[in-house]
Amino acid sequence: MSGTVYVVDEVTAEELDGSVGEFAGLLTETVDGGASVGFLAPLDPDESAVWWRALVPEVAAGRLVLWTARAAADGRLAGTVQLRPATPANGRHRGEVAKLMVHPADRGHRLAGRLLAALEERAAESGIRLLVLDTETGSPAERMYEAEGWTRVGSVPDYAADTTGVLHPTTIFFKSLVR
């Protein structure tokens, strides 16, 4: 797969609705592979599909912005990331990054970095100046965020359960988009 070319695009509500099964498959494989993205393993694919389907109105209303990375040759879903712009009047300058996932077969191609770059560019264009996120302390994701220029704020003990239900600390990161 070293020669695989990927395309990163923002996803409309209609596109998400038409691809719920694909997104559900990615989420299920990610969780069943041990990534802590808010679900316990084994994740039922139907439960995963219900979760994605519930996001369609959020995307349609602009309360959630979603990107995909797809293999250019066959359109296969290789990764995704979400931006949740803050809605309070005093927080419209910030947003939260959520559910960054790269299919296990597509890791090692810097897709996470490309998805984050697309998100950061769109966030800055829409007036968002500050991004925040959290990730499991000690995870590969934590190292990736550091490599992508995110600043570690600290950690919170016993913040979230991993896919097996064991509590772990989470690390909070931020990134300023002001250049």
Rank of each mutant, 00 (worst) to 15 (best):
R63E: 13
A35E: 15
R94F: 09
G38M: 02
R63H: 12
V81G: 03
E146N: 06
G21D: 06
S155F: 06
E29K: 14
L66R: 08
R114S: 10
E120H: 10
A112K: 07
V37K: 02
G127W: 10
V31D: 03
S36H: 04
S126H: 14
S2I: 14
A89Y: 13
T163H: 05
T30Q: 05
V132D: 14
V59M: 07
L77D: 02
L133V: 09
R143W: 05
A69S: 06
L66K: 07
P88F: 12
L77I: 02
V56I: 09
G18Q: 08
T12I: 04
R70D: 07
T87M: 15
V31S: 02
L130D: 15
E142Q: 09
S155M: 07
V8Y: 01
W150C: 01
E58C: 07
Y159P: 00
P104N: 10
A60H: 07
R143E: 13
L55K: 15
L27W: 01
W150N: 03
M1Y: 10
T4L: 08
L119F: 10
R94D: 10
R179F: 12
D74N: 08
E96R: 15
G127Q: 10
A105N: 13
L167S: 00
L100A: 11
L55Q: 15
T28P: 04
G127C: 10
V31Y: 05
